[in-house]
Deep mutational scan, measured.
Amino acid sequence: HNLTITQGKLFFHYNPKLCLSEIHKMEEVSGTKGRQERNDIALKTNGDQASCENELLKFSYIRTSFDKILLRWEPYWPPDFRDLLGFMLFYKEAPYQNVTEFDGQDACGSNSWTVVDIDPPLRSNDPKSQNHPGWLMRGLKPWTQYAIFVKTLVTFSDERRTYGAKSDIIYVQTDATNPSVPLDPISVSNSSSQIILKWKPPSDPNGNITHYLVFWERQAEDSELFELDYCLKGLKLPSRTWSPPFESEDSQKHNQSEYEDSAGECCSCPKTDSQILKELEESSFRKTFEDYLHNVVFVPRKTSSGTGAEDPRPSRKRRSLGDVGNVTVAVPTVAAFPNTSSTSVPTSPEEHRPFEKVVNKESLVISGLRHFTGYRIELQACNQDTPEERCSVAAYVSARTMPEAKADDIVGPVTHEIFENNVVHLMWQEPKEPNGLIVLYEVSYRRYGDEELHLCVSRKHFALERGCRLRGLSPGNYSVRIRATSLAGNGSWTEPTYFYVTDYLDVPSNIA
Protein backbone atom coordinates (compact mmCIF):
# COMPACT_ATOMS: atom_id res chain seq x y z
CA HIS A 1 0.00 0.00 0.00
CA ASN A 2 1.14 3.52 -0.75
CA LEU A 3 1.27 5.87 2.23
CA THR A 4 1.71 9.61 1.81
CA ILE A 5 1.66 12.14 4.64
CA THR A 6 1.14 15.51 2.98
CA GLN A 7 1.27 17.51 6.19
CA GLY A 8 2.65 16.77 9.63
CA LYS A 9 5.65 14.79 10.72
CA LEU A 10 6.71 11.54 12.47
CA PHE A 11 7.20 11.13 16.19
CA PHE A 12 8.99 7.99 17.56
CA HIS A 13 9.93 7.50 21.20
CA TYR A 14 10.35 4.50 23.55
CA ASN A 15 10.45 1.72 20.97
CA PRO A 16 13.30 -0.45 22.33
CA LYS A 17 12.78 -3.23 19.77
CA LEU A 18 12.39 -0.92 16.74
CA CYS A 19 15.62 -0.24 14.88
CA LEU A 20 16.34 3.26 13.63
CA SER A 21 16.87 1.90 10.14
CA GLU A 22 13.21 0.88 10.02
CA ILE A 23 12.16 4.38 11.16
CA HIS A 24 14.27 5.94 8.43
CA LYS A 25 12.56 3.67 5.89
CA MET A 26 9.25 4.96 7.17
CA GLU A 27 10.43 8.51 6.51
CA GLU A 28 11.25 7.59 2.93
CA VAL A 29 7.98 5.86 2.05
CA SER A 30 5.77 8.44 3.76
CA GLY A 31 7.45 11.46 2.23
CA THR A 32 8.22 13.10 5.57
CA LYS A 33 11.97 13.03 5.36
CA GLY A 34 13.45 16.34 6.45
CA ARG A 35 10.38 17.53 8.36
CA GLN A 36 11.32 15.97 11.70
CA GLU A 37 13.23 17.93 14.23
CA ARG A 38 16.17 16.44 16.16
CA ASN A 39 14.09 15.35 19.16
CA ASP A 40 11.13 13.93 17.21
CA ILE A 41 12.96 10.64 16.66
CA ALA A 42 14.73 9.67 19.89
CA LEU A 43 18.13 8.10 19.33
CA LYS A 44 18.42 6.60 22.82
CA THR A 45 14.96 5.05 23.30
CA ASN A 46 14.43 3.54 19.85
CA GLY A 47 16.18 0.25 19.14
CA ASP A 48 18.21 0.34 22.33
CA GLN A 49 17.22 -3.30 23.11
CA ALA A 50 17.41 -4.61 19.56
CA SER A 51 20.23 -5.96 17.46
CA CYS A 52 20.04 -3.72 14.45
CA GLU A 53 22.24 -5.13 11.72
CA ASN A 54 23.32 -3.62 8.49
CA GLU A 55 25.85 -6.23 7.31
CA LEU A 56 25.40 -9.82 6.15
CA LEU A 57 27.13 -12.68 7.96
CA LYS A 58 28.01 -15.67 5.81
CA PHE A 59 28.63 -19.21 7.02
CA SER A 60 32.06 -20.48 6.04
CA TYR A 61 31.94 -24.09 7.29
CA ILE A 62 29.13 -26.57 7.98
CA ARG A 63 29.63 -30.17 9.06
CA THR A 64 26.96 -32.59 10.27
CA SER A 65 26.63 -35.86 12.14
CA PHE A 66 23.51 -37.68 13.28
CA ASP A 67 23.16 -35.57 16.46
CA LYS A 68 25.51 -32.61 15.95
CA ILE A 69 26.06 -29.68 13.60
CA LEU A 70 29.36 -27.78 13.53
CA LEU A 71 29.07 -24.22 12.25
CA ARG A 72 31.60 -21.50 11.50
CA TRP A 73 30.98 -18.08 10.00
CA GLU A 74 33.04 -15.21 8.71
CA PRO A 75 34.57 -12.95 11.37
CA TYR A 76 32.92 -9.64 12.09
CA TRP A 77 34.30 -6.73 14.11
CA PRO A 78 32.62 -3.31 14.49
CA PRO A 79 34.66 -0.10 14.13
CA ASP A 80 35.31 -0.25 17.84
CA PHE A 81 35.92 -3.97 18.42
CA ARG A 82 35.10 -3.51 22.11
CA ASP A 83 31.44 -3.00 21.16
CA LEU A 84 31.13 -6.66 20.05
CA LEU A 85 29.79 -8.61 23.04
CA GLY A 86 29.31 -11.85 21.13
CA PHE A 87 26.98 -13.69 18.79
CA MET A 88 23.49 -15.09 19.17
CA LEU A 89 22.81 -18.38 17.38
CA PHE A 90 19.15 -19.17 16.68
CA TYR A 91 17.93 -22.61 15.61
CA LYS A 92 14.81 -24.76 15.61
CA GLU A 93 13.34 -27.77 13.83
CA ALA A 94 11.98 -26.86 10.41
CA PRO A 95 10.24 -29.60 8.40
CA TYR A 96 9.66 -27.08 5.61
CA GLN A 97 11.87 -24.29 4.33
CA ASN A 98 9.40 -21.48 5.00
CA VAL A 99 10.64 -20.20 8.36
CA THR A 100 10.96 -16.51 9.23
CA GLU A 101 12.82 -14.87 12.06
CA PHE A 102 9.62 -13.77 13.75
CA ASP A 103 7.72 -17.08 13.76
CA GLY A 104 5.99 -17.74 17.06
CA GLN A 105 6.82 -14.36 18.54
CA ASP A 106 4.43 -12.99 21.14
CA ALA A 107 3.91 -9.66 22.88
CA CYS A 108 6.29 -10.62 25.68
CA GLY A 109 9.20 -11.03 23.30
CA SER A 110 9.47 -14.82 23.45
CA ASN A 111 9.54 -16.90 20.29
CA SER A 112 9.96 -20.46 19.06
CA TRP A 113 13.72 -20.29 18.52
CA THR A 114 16.39 -21.85 20.70
CA VAL A 115 19.04 -19.20 21.39
CA VAL A 116 22.71 -19.78 22.21
CA ASP A 117 24.97 -16.94 23.37
CA ILE A 118 28.49 -17.29 21.96
CA ASP A 119 31.55 -15.34 23.08
CA PRO A 120 33.55 -13.57 20.37
CA PRO A 121 36.84 -15.20 19.35
CA LEU A 122 40.22 -13.79 20.25
CA ARG A 123 40.99 -10.83 18.05
CA SER A 124 44.15 -11.01 15.98
CA ASN A 125 46.32 -8.01 15.24
CA ASP A 126 46.46 -9.07 11.62
CA PRO A 127 43.12 -8.23 9.94
CA LYS A 128 43.72 -10.92 7.29
CA SER A 129 44.07 -13.79 9.77
CA GLN A 130 41.09 -13.35 12.05
CA ASN A 131 39.66 -16.45 13.71
CA HIS A 132 36.30 -17.61 12.43
CA PRO A 133 33.74 -17.82 15.24
CA GLY A 134 31.63 -20.95 15.44
CA TRP A 135 29.58 -23.31 17.55
CA LEU A 136 29.00 -27.05 17.91
CA MET A 137 25.27 -27.76 18.22
CA ARG A 138 24.69 -30.90 20.30
CA GLY A 139 21.78 -33.10 21.27
CA LEU A 140 19.98 -32.80 17.95
CA LYS A 141 17.58 -35.30 16.45
CA PRO A 142 18.86 -37.57 13.68
CA TRP A 143 17.63 -37.03 10.13
CA THR A 144 15.95 -33.75 11.07
CA GLN A 145 16.08 -30.42 9.23
CA TYR A 146 16.94 -27.35 11.28
CA ALA A 147 16.57 -23.67 10.46
CA ILE A 148 19.60 -21.68 11.65
CA PHE A 149 20.74 -18.08 11.63
CA VAL A 150 23.22 -16.03 13.63
CA LYS A 151 23.51 -12.35 14.45
CA THR A 152 25.81 -10.12 16.45
CA LEU A 153 25.28 -8.71 19.91
CA VAL A 154 26.78 -5.22 20.26
CA THR A 155 26.80 -2.55 22.95
CA PHE A 156 24.97 0.74 22.91
CA SER A 157 26.78 3.39 20.86
CA ASP A 158 26.77 6.95 22.08
CA GLU A 159 27.12 8.18 18.54
CA ARG A 160 24.07 6.04 17.64
CA ARG A 161 25.85 4.56 14.71
CA THR A 162 23.75 1.57 13.72
CA TYR A 163 26.01 -1.35 13.03
CA GLY A 164 25.87 -5.10 13.42
CA ALA A 165 25.54 -8.16 11.22
CA LYS A 166 23.10 -11.00 10.69
CA SER A 167 23.07 -14.06 8.47
CA ASP A 168 20.32 -15.35 6.27
CA ILE A 169 18.31 -18.31 7.53
CA ILE A 170 19.91 -21.53 6.34
CA TYR A 171 18.54 -25.08 6.50
CA VAL A 172 20.76 -27.95 7.60
CA GLN A 173 19.72 -31.58 8.00
CA THR A 174 21.41 -33.94 10.43
CA ASP A 175 22.66 -37.30 9.22
CA ALA A 176 20.79 -40.57 9.46
CA THR A 177 21.65 -43.20 12.05
CA ASN A 178 20.40 -46.58 13.17
CA PRO A 179 16.62 -46.66 13.52
CA SER A 180 14.84 -47.77 16.66
CA VAL A 181 13.39 -51.27 16.86
CA PRO A 182 10.29 -52.18 14.84
CA LEU A 183 7.15 -51.95 16.95
CA ASP A 184 4.57 -54.56 17.92
CA PRO A 185 5.82 -57.64 16.04
CA ILE A 186 3.13 -60.33 15.90
CA SER A 187 3.68 -63.87 14.64
CA VAL A 188 1.03 -66.47 13.94
CA SER A 189 0.87 -69.78 12.12
CA ASN A 190 -1.72 -70.47 9.47
CA SER A 191 -0.49 -73.94 8.48
CA SER A 192 1.94 -76.63 9.52
CA SER A 193 4.72 -75.12 7.40
CA GLN A 194 4.14 -71.35 7.50
CA ILE A 195 4.38 -68.47 9.96
CA ILE A 196 2.94 -65.04 9.21
CA LEU A 197 4.86 -62.12 10.69
CA LYS A 198 3.49 -58.58 10.96
CA TRP A 199 4.94 -55.47 12.58
CA LYS A 200 4.78 -51.68 12.68
CA PRO A 201 7.49 -49.24 11.57
CA PRO A 202 9.95 -47.90 14.17
CA SER A 203 8.89 -44.89 16.19
CA ASP A 204 12.22 -43.24 15.31
CA PRO A 205 13.24 -44.24 11.77
CA ASN A 206 16.24 -41.84 11.92
CA GLY A 207 16.32 -41.92 8.14
CA ASN A 208 14.30 -43.40 5.29
CA ILE A 209 13.49 -47.04 6.04
CA THR A 210 14.72 -48.96 3.01
CA HIS A 211 14.08 -52.54 4.10
CA TYR A 212 13.66 -54.97 6.96
CA LEU A 213 15.71 -58.06 7.75
CA VAL A 214 13.90 -61.09 9.14
CA PHE A 215 15.91 -64.00 10.54
CA TRP A 216 14.38 -67.18 11.88
CA GLU A 217 15.89 -70.01 13.84
CA ARG A 218 14.46 -73.35 14.87
CA GLN A 219 14.31 -73.77 18.63
CA ALA A 220 15.14 -76.99 20.45
CA GLU A 221 12.52 -78.41 22.77
CA ASP A 222 13.07 -78.16 26.52
CA SER A 223 15.66 -80.61 27.80
CA GLU A 224 13.30 -81.86 30.51
CA LEU A 225 11.07 -83.35 27.81
CA PHE A 226 13.85 -85.80 27.00
CA GLU A 227 14.68 -86.62 30.62
CA LEU A 228 11.39 -86.97 32.50
CA ASP A 229 9.32 -90.15 32.57
CA TYR A 230 5.78 -89.00 31.90
CA CYS A 231 4.42 -92.44 32.68
CA LEU A 232 4.99 -91.81 36.39
CA LYS A 233 1.80 -91.25 38.33
CA GLY A 234 1.04 -87.61 39.04
CA LEU A 235 3.28 -86.22 36.30
CA LYS A 236 1.24 -84.08 33.96
CA LEU A 237 1.69 -84.61 30.25
CA PRO A 238 3.45 -81.68 28.54
CA SER A 239 1.67 -79.83 25.79
CA ARG A 240 2.52 -77.04 23.41
CA THR A 241 0.15 -74.82 21.48
CA TRP A 242 0.75 -73.24 18.13
CA SER A 243 0.37 -69.53 17.50
CA PRO A 244 -3.31 -68.72 16.83
CA PRO A 245 -4.31 -66.91 13.65
CA PHE A 246 -4.81 -63.16 13.49
CA GLU A 247 -8.07 -61.65 14.59
CA SER A 248 -10.22 -60.10 11.91
CA GLU A 249 -9.22 -56.71 10.65
CA ASP A 250 -12.37 -55.14 12.06
CA SER A 251 -11.55 -56.27 15.57
CA GLN A 252 -8.11 -54.73 15.31
CA LYS A 253 -9.29 -51.22 14.48
CA HIS A 254 -8.18 -48.66 17.01
CA ASN A 255 -10.48 -46.24 18.75
CA GLN A 256 -13.46 -48.58 18.45
CA SER A 257 -16.13 -49.29 21.02
CA GLU A 258 -15.95 -52.65 22.77
CA TYR A 259 -19.70 -53.02 22.69
CA GLU A 260 -21.70 -53.58 19.56
CA ASP A 261 -25.27 -52.64 19.01
CA SER A 262 -27.41 -55.73 18.66
CA ALA A 263 -29.34 -54.02 15.87
CA GLY A 264 -26.25 -53.73 13.67
CA GLU A 265 -23.01 -51.84 13.36
CA CYS A 266 -22.10 -49.20 15.89
CA CYS A 267 -19.96 -46.13 15.56
CA SER A 268 -16.66 -45.86 17.37
CA CYS A 269 -16.45 -43.85 20.55
CA PRO A 270 -13.97 -40.98 20.34
CA LYS A 271 -11.14 -41.01 22.83
CA THR A 272 -11.17 -38.46 25.61
CA ASP A 273 -8.34 -35.99 26.15
CA SER A 274 -7.18 -37.94 29.19
CA GLN A 275 -7.01 -41.18 27.18
CA ILE A 276 -5.02 -39.50 24.41
CA LEU A 277 -2.66 -37.92 26.96
CA LYS A 278 -2.18 -41.27 28.67
CA GLU A 279 -1.34 -42.96 25.36
CA LEU A 280 1.19 -40.24 24.55
CA GLU A 281 2.82 -40.66 27.97
CA GLU A 282 2.98 -44.44 27.51
CA SER A 283 4.49 -44.02 24.05
CA SER A 284 7.09 -41.58 25.38
CA PHE A 285 7.96 -43.91 28.24
CA ARG A 286 8.30 -46.86 25.88
CA LYS A 287 10.67 -44.94 23.61
CA THR A 288 12.77 -43.82 26.58
CA PHE A 289 12.89 -47.34 27.96
CA GLU A 290 13.88 -48.77 24.56
CA ASP A 291 16.69 -46.25 24.27
CA TYR A 292 17.87 -47.22 27.76
CA LEU A 293 17.91 -50.90 26.85
CA HIS A 294 19.79 -50.23 23.63
CA ASN A 295 22.44 -48.17 25.40
CA VAL A 296 22.87 -50.30 28.53
CA VAL A 297 21.88 -53.88 27.83
CA PHE A 298 23.06 -54.43 24.27
CA VAL A 299 26.82 -54.37 23.80
CA PRO A 300 28.01 -53.83 20.21
CA ARG A 301 30.11 -56.59 18.69
CA LYS A 302 33.77 -55.88 18.17
CA THR A 303 34.67 -55.69 14.53
CA SER A 304 37.85 -57.16 13.20
CA SER A 305 40.92 -54.96 13.47
CA GLY A 306 44.00 -54.79 11.34
CA THR A 307 45.69 -57.51 13.42
CA GLY A 308 43.98 -60.30 11.50
CA ALA A 309 41.47 -61.20 14.21
CA GLU A 310 38.27 -62.60 12.75
CA ASP A 311 34.83 -61.22 13.37
CA PRO A 312 33.01 -63.84 15.48
CA ARG A 313 29.69 -63.20 13.75
CA PRO A 314 28.57 -65.83 11.24
CA SER A 315 28.36 -64.53 7.72
CA ARG A 316 24.92 -63.98 6.28
CA LYS A 317 23.90 -66.29 3.49
CA ARG A 318 20.64 -66.01 1.60
CA ARG A 319 18.66 -69.21 1.28
CA SER A 320 15.58 -70.06 -0.64
CA LEU A 321 12.49 -70.58 1.45
CA GLY A 322 12.33 -74.19 0.32
CA ASP A 323 15.48 -75.00 2.27
CA VAL A 324 14.23 -73.64 5.57
CA GLY A 325 12.56 -76.83 6.74
CA ASN A 326 15.87 -78.55 7.47
CA VAL A 327 17.63 -75.71 9.17
CA THR A 328 18.87 -77.61 12.19
CA VAL A 329 21.06 -80.65 12.68
CA ALA A 330 19.15 -83.76 13.74
CA VAL A 331 20.79 -86.03 16.31
CA PRO A 332 19.36 -89.40 17.39
CA THR A 333 18.16 -89.64 20.98
CA VAL A 334 20.10 -92.85 21.63
CA ALA A 335 22.96 -93.62 19.28
CA ALA A 336 22.69 -97.40 19.70
CA PHE A 337 19.20 -97.58 18.22
CA PRO A 338 18.94 -96.07 14.75
CA ASN A 339 15.16 -96.46 14.52
CA THR A 340 14.46 -93.73 17.08
CA SER A 341 13.32 -90.38 15.71
CA SER A 342 15.59 -87.38 15.35
CA THR A 343 13.53 -84.92 17.37
CA SER A 344 16.37 -83.62 19.51
CA VAL A 345 17.41 -80.42 17.80
CA PRO A 346 20.69 -78.95 19.05
CA THR A 347 21.50 -76.12 16.69
CA SER A 348 25.06 -75.72 15.54
CA PRO A 349 26.38 -72.25 16.40
CA GLU A 350 28.33 -72.16 13.13
CA GLU A 351 25.24 -72.71 11.02
CA HIS A 352 24.03 -69.86 8.85
CA ARG A 353 20.59 -68.66 9.79
CA PRO A 354 18.11 -68.24 6.96
CA PHE A 355 16.83 -64.72 6.45
CA GLU A 356 14.66 -62.70 4.14
CA LYS A 357 14.92 -59.08 3.03
CA VAL A 358 11.55 -57.31 3.09
CA VAL A 359 11.06 -54.12 1.06
CA ASN A 360 8.10 -51.71 1.04
CA LYS A 361 5.89 -53.66 3.42
CA GLU A 362 5.56 -54.61 7.09
CA SER A 363 4.69 -58.30 6.80
CA LEU A 364 6.23 -61.57 5.69
CA VAL A 365 5.07 -65.14 5.19
CA ILE A 366 7.85 -67.54 6.20
CA SER A 367 7.37 -70.84 4.38
CA GLY A 368 9.06 -74.21 4.26
CA LEU A 369 9.10 -74.68 8.04
CA ARG A 370 8.87 -77.91 10.01
CA HIS A 371 5.48 -78.77 11.42
CA PHE A 372 4.71 -78.08 15.09
CA THR A 373 8.12 -76.59 15.74
CA GLY A 374 9.00 -73.49 17.71
CA TYR A 375 10.90 -70.73 15.92
CA ARG A 376 12.57 -67.62 17.24
CA ILE A 377 12.19 -64.76 14.79
CA GLU A 378 14.48 -61.74 14.75
CA LEU A 379 13.35 -58.52 13.08
CA GLN A 380 15.52 -55.51 12.22
CA ALA A 381 14.69 -52.22 10.51
CA CYS A 382 17.30 -50.74 8.17
CA ASN A 383 17.54 -47.28 6.62
CA GLN A 384 20.60 -47.91 4.47
CA ASP A 385 21.55 -50.77 2.19
CA THR A 386 24.90 -49.75 0.73
CA PRO A 387 27.82 -49.41 1.21
CA GLU A 388 26.94 -51.26 4.42
CA GLU A 389 23.67 -51.96 6.14
CA ARG A 390 22.60 -49.64 8.93
CA CYS A 391 20.03 -51.50 10.98
CA SER A 392 18.32 -51.32 14.33
CA VAL A 393 18.66 -53.52 17.35
CA ALA A 394 16.61 -56.66 16.80
CA ALA A 395 13.07 -57.19 18.02
CA TYR A 396 12.34 -60.81 18.92
CA VAL A 397 9.16 -62.84 18.71
CA SER A 398 8.47 -66.56 18.93
CA ALA A 399 5.96 -68.72 17.13
CA ARG A 400 5.14 -72.40 16.67
CA THR A 401 3.79 -73.90 13.47
CA MET A 402 0.56 -75.87 13.44
CA PRO A 403 0.62 -79.67 13.86
CA GLU A 404 0.66 -81.95 10.86
CA ALA A 405 -2.20 -84.40 10.55
CA LYS A 406 -1.15 -88.05 10.96
CA ALA A 407 2.44 -87.07 11.76
CA ASP A 408 2.16 -88.89 15.11
CA ASP A 409 0.80 -92.11 13.60
CA ILE A 410 2.98 -95.20 13.91
CA VAL A 411 3.96 -96.34 10.44
CA GLY A 412 4.51 -99.99 9.67
CA PRO A 413 3.42 -103.18 11.40
CA VAL A 414 3.67 -103.91 15.10
CA THR A 415 5.76 -107.07 15.42
CA HIS A 416 6.14 -109.37 18.38
CA GLU A 417 8.45 -112.03 19.71
CA ILE A 418 7.42 -114.56 22.36
CA PHE A 419 9.94 -115.67 24.98
CA GLU A 420 9.83 -118.11 27.83
CA ASN A 421 7.84 -117.41 30.97
CA ASN A 422 5.07 -115.93 28.82
CA VAL A 423 6.99 -112.75 27.97
CA VAL A 424 6.07 -111.01 24.72
CA HIS A 425 8.36 -108.39 23.20
CA LEU A 426 6.38 -105.87 21.12
CA MET A 427 8.31 -103.79 18.57
CA TRP A 428 7.33 -100.87 16.34
CA GLN A 429 8.84 -97.93 14.52
CA GLU A 430 8.68 -94.45 16.05
CA PRO A 431 7.08 -91.79 13.80
CA LYS A 432 9.83 -90.28 11.68
CA GLU A 433 8.60 -86.67 11.78
CA PRO A 434 6.35 -86.31 14.83
CA ASN A 435 4.75 -83.07 15.98
CA GLY A 436 7.49 -81.81 18.24
CA LEU A 437 8.60 -85.05 19.83
CA ILE A 438 7.04 -88.26 21.14
CA VAL A 439 6.82 -88.22 24.94
CA LEU A 440 5.21 -91.64 25.50
CA TYR A 441 3.36 -94.57 23.93
CA GLU A 442 0.09 -96.12 24.99
CA VAL A 443 -0.18 -99.91 24.59
CA SER A 444 -3.70 -101.36 24.80
CA TYR A 445 -3.94 -105.16 24.90
CA ARG A 446 -6.55 -107.72 25.89
CA ARG A 447 -6.99 -111.44 26.01
CA TYR A 448 -10.02 -112.80 24.24
CA GLY A 449 -12.96 -112.59 26.64
CA ASP A 450 -11.17 -110.32 29.17
CA GLU A 451 -11.16 -106.57 29.75
CA GLU A 452 -8.73 -104.33 27.92
CA LEU A 453 -5.52 -103.44 29.77
CA HIS A 454 -3.29 -100.40 29.24
CA LEU A 455 0.45 -99.98 29.53
CA CYS A 456 2.37 -96.68 29.39
CA VAL A 457 5.78 -96.79 27.69
CA SER A 458 8.05 -93.83 28.29
CA ARG A 459 10.37 -92.35 25.71
CA LYS A 460 13.47 -93.69 27.46
CA HIS A 461 11.97 -97.14 27.89
CA PHE A 462 11.10 -97.34 24.21
CA ALA A 463 14.64 -96.33 23.24
CA LEU A 464 16.10 -99.14 25.38
CA GLU A 465 13.69 -101.89 24.33
CA ARG A 466 12.87 -100.80 20.79
CA GLY A 467 9.35 -101.22 22.05
CA CYS A 468 8.15 -102.85 25.28
CA ARG A 469 7.75 -106.25 26.95
CA LEU A 470 4.51 -107.69 28.25
CA ARG A 471 5.17 -110.01 31.18
CA GLY A 472 3.11 -112.52 33.12
CA LEU A 473 0.58 -113.10 30.38
CA SER A 474 -1.94 -115.85 30.80
CA PRO A 475 -2.23 -118.36 27.96
CA GLY A 476 -4.69 -117.38 25.25
CA ASN A 477 -5.34 -115.27 22.18
CA TYR A 478 -4.35 -111.59 22.46
CA SER A 479 -4.88 -108.44 20.45
CA VAL A 480 -2.78 -105.30 20.87
CA ARG A 481 -3.01 -101.69 19.64
CA ILE A 482 -0.49 -98.89 20.09
CA ARG A 483 -0.61 -95.13 19.71
CA ALA A 484 1.95 -92.39 20.22
CA THR A 485 1.49 -89.20 22.22
CA SER A 486 3.42 -86.12 21.11
CA LEU A 487 3.50 -82.51 22.26
CA ALA A 488 0.50 -81.90 20.02
CA GLY A 489 -1.59 -84.72 21.50
CA ASN A 490 -2.42 -88.30 20.65
CA GLY A 491 -1.85 -89.99 17.34
CA SER A 492 -4.07 -92.68 15.84
CA TRP A 493 -4.27 -96.24 17.11
CA THR A 494 -2.55 -98.86 15.02
CA GLU A 495 -4.46 -101.71 13.49
CA PRO A 496 -4.83 -104.61 15.99
CA THR A 497 -2.04 -107.15 16.03
CA TYR A 498 -2.82 -110.69 17.20
CA PHE A 499 -0.66 -113.30 18.90
CA TYR A 500 -1.16 -116.47 20.91
CA VAL A 501 0.50 -117.24 24.23
CA THR A 502 0.83 -120.90 25.16
CA ASP A 503 1.17 -122.37 28.63
CA TYR A 504 4.91 -122.74 29.00
CA LEU A 505 4.35 -125.70 31.42
CA ASP A 506 2.75 -127.68 28.56
CA VAL A 507 5.68 -127.21 26.21
CA PRO A 508 6.88 -130.72 25.10
CA SER A 509 10.33 -131.70 26.30
CA ASN A 510 13.10 -133.01 24.07
CA ILE A 511 14.43 -135.26 26.83
CA ALA A 512 13.74 -138.97 26.17
Rank of each mutant, 00 (worst) to 15 (best):
R370A: 14
P475Y: 07
V324P: 09
P434R: 03
R376H: 14
G489C: 02
S363T: 09
S257I: 05
A395R: 05
D408T: 02
D291T: 11
E260S: 10
R240S: 08
E495S: 08
D503V: 11
T485Y: 13
S392Y: 02
G234C: 11
D409R: 07
H461E: 08
G436L: 06
Q252L: 10
P496F: 10
S344N: 08
N208T: 05
N435H: 03
L228F: 13
I438F: 03
Y445R: 02
V329A: 05
T307C: 04
A263H: 04
E442K: 08
D409K: 09
A484G: 14
I511F: 04
P245K: 07
E417P: 03
T272Y: 12
N295P: 15
E404S: 02
F298N: 02
G374D: 09
G374R: 03
Y504V: 11
P434M: 02
G368M: 14
V439E: 05
A335N: 13
P338N: 11
I209S: 04
A336N: 10
M427I: 13
E290K: 12
P332Y: 03
R376W: 13
V439R: 05
Q256F: 10
E356T: 09
S486C: 01
F419K: 14
P244D: 14
V297K: 10
D408V: 02
S243E: 04
L225A: 05
E279P: 06
W493S: 09
S344L: 07
R483D: 00
I482D: 01
V214Q: 00
F499S: 01
T415W: 02
G207Q: 01
A399C: 13
G449H: 01
H352F: 08
P338L: 06
R471K: 06
L228A: 15
A336K: 11
A463N: 08
E290F: 04
V297G: 14
T386W: 08
N421V: 04
R459C: 14
V296N: 11
P314S: 12
A220L: 07
E388S: 04
T307P: 10
I276P: 07
S262Y: 07
E442I: 05
T333S: 13
H425G: 03
V327N: 06
Q429F: 13
N255I: 13
A405P: 02
D222R: 14
A394M: 13
H211Y: 15
G264Q: 13
G412M: 11
E388W: 06
V393P: 00
F419S: 09
V423G: 15
E249S: 05
H416V: 09
T494S: 06
P245W: 11
V297Y: 13
K317D: 07
S305G: 04
L473G: 00
K357Q: 06
C269W: 10
I482E: 00
L440C: 11
D506E: 03
S474F: 14
K406W: 11
K302G: 05
L369S: 01
E227N: 11
P338E: 08
E389T: 11
C266Y: 03
I366E: 00
V439C: 03
N422V: 03
S444L: 04
A335L: 10
D503P: 15
R313A: 14
P238Y: 08
S320R: 14
E224V: 01
V424M: 10
Y259L: 03
E420W: 15
Y396T: 07
E310K: 01
L280E: 01
N339Y: 11
N206Q: 14
R481Y: 08
K317T: 07
E465R: 04
N422L: 05
P434W: 01
E495F: 12
A330H: 15
S348E: 12
L277D: 09
T347M: 12
S492M: 05
S348N: 14
S239R: 09
S251T: 10
V424E: 03
G306D: 12
R240C: 05
S492Y: 02
G491W: 00
V414P: 11
H425E: 14
T502I: 03
Y445W: 07
R376S: 04
D323I: 14
R240A: 00
V358W: 15
E362N: 10
L293G: 02
G412D: 10
V345L: 10
K317R: 12
S223E: 12
R466M: 08
P354H: 12
H425F: 08
T497S: 05
R481W: 06
F419R: 12
P338H: 12
V480N: 01
T307Y: 14
S203V: 06
I366Q: 03
E378A: 09
S398I: 12
R469L: 09
S342A: 14
Y441N: 02
E249R: 07
F246I: 06
P387L: 11
R370I: 11
G374E: 11
L235Y: 06
F285P: 11
E281K: 03
T303Y: 08
S344H: 13
P403L: 10
P338I: 14
